[in-house]
């Protein structure tokens, strides 16, 4: 049902944030900064509360406050999840490392995913959800780093994602199948799934890909689960013979179940619209200084090999972002 589906980020540009209110924000930000620097934070927060708009947490405000709110998807192993009240996962650990280097406390900001990335950026990075306008992350992790996405225009020529800055690619992600060798020969092509059930997370690219490939002949073998973990459990229970998801998700599940005999496949994904993509972070476009500071930290982790070690901690293989291949040349591979 899309009687009312919140739109992409340009909603606010075109309809509500005219020149006047923008000017207002600038003034208020200065006022707020003055308060932070000279008085106490409580009064400033009170001001923002009256205005019911997100606090302007620029680099200086983040450092002054002593904490960094790191936006991560909820319940999303191995990237970000909670265990015994502690934020775990690759993105959580990376967020911790960033906060540490900035000299501030790490605070997880959990994100319930919406229908698209544009929605998540609007709700968590630049505008706030309409039920929690003041609840924003200072930086959001696991944001695909794609220039085409960053500069995408709508039909009227407006840039759809100009309220955020995408930066700091730290990983290249790709698709992966794991299978049960007791049920399947090594997967040479996805054509075998015309005959064998395969589990996917509902409403993901693997779901659409498998449901439409080979003229839909795989479709009836596609079993839908709420997440890759549940699909993996389905494979362990014998309900499906394979699982398709993101490589780190699949690697993590394999590492979690080392004695169950499931193995990664080496097949390709012909016709899949996007085989690999870079993953980075996002901040609000007015908070570039914070982005630059985080970018420098992450760059060091990527180049120094710490990032790879961080992935290995969760049993996940690591690929350096394509961005670095461009910057450093072929030897980076």
């Amino acid at each position: 049902m899309i009687q009312q589906r919140p739109t992409t980020s340009n909603e606010m540009n075109s309809t509500r944030l005219g020149g006047g209110p923008e000017g207002g924000i600038v003034t208020i930000t200065r006022y707020y900064m003055a308060l932070v620097l000279t008085m106490f934070t409580g009064a400033a927060i009170g001001q923002e509360g009256i205005l019911d708009r997100p606090p302007e947490r620029t680099y200086d405000a983040v450092i002054a406050s002593g904490f960094l709110k790191v936006g991560m998807y909820q319940n999303f192993p191995p990237y970000s999840y909670e265990q015994d009240g502690v934020a775990k996962g690759i993105d959580a650990d990376l967020g911790r490392r960033i906060a540490e280097r900035l000299g501030v406390e790490f605070q997880p900001h959990w994100i319930v995913p919406d229908e698209t990335l544009g929605d998540d950026l609007r709700n968590n990075v630049w505008k706030g959800h309409y039920l929690a306008k003041r609840r924003l992350a200072d930086v959001m992790m696991r944001v695909p780093y794609d220039k085409k996405f960053a500069y995408m225009q709508d039909s009227t020529g407006e840039y759809m994602n100009e309220q955020v800055v995408l930066f700091g690619p730290y990983q290249q992600e790709q698709w992966q199948i794991a299978y049960n060798p007791a049920k399947l020969d090594p997967v040479s092509t996805i054509a075998v799934f015309r005959y064998h059930p395969i589990g996917v997370e509902i409403d993901t690219l693997p779901d659409f890909y498998l449901s439409s490939s080979f003229n839909g002949s795989i479709r009836s073998q596609v079993k839908h689960y709420n997440n890759v973990g549940a699909a993996f459990d389905g494979m362990l229970a014998g309900d499906v013979s394979a699982v398709m998801g993101m490589r780190a998700e699949v690697d993590f599940e394999l590492a979690e179940h080392p004695d169950d005999g499931m193995v990664p496949a080496t097949n390709g994904f012909p016709g899949l619209t996007k085989q690999v993509w870079d993953v980075g972070m996002a901040v609000k476009h007015t908070h570039r200084q914070l982005g630059y500071a985080i970018e420098a930290i992450v760059d060091e982790l990527v180049r120094g090999g710490e990032m790879e070690a961080l992935f290995a901690r969760y049993g996940a293989r690591y690929s350096i972002p394509g961005y670095y291949a461009e910057v450093l040349g072929a030897q980076a591979e």
Binding site: Y73, F76, Y79, P113, E115, T116, L117, D120, R142, V143, P144, D146, K148, F149, M152, E173, D203, T204, L205, F208, M246, T273, K274, W277, V279
Partner: peptide, 12 residues
Amino acid sequence: AVSYKKGAAFLG
């Protein structure tokens, strides 16, 4: 095709 969801490539 230039579409993403929950950190993953998507087809919107």
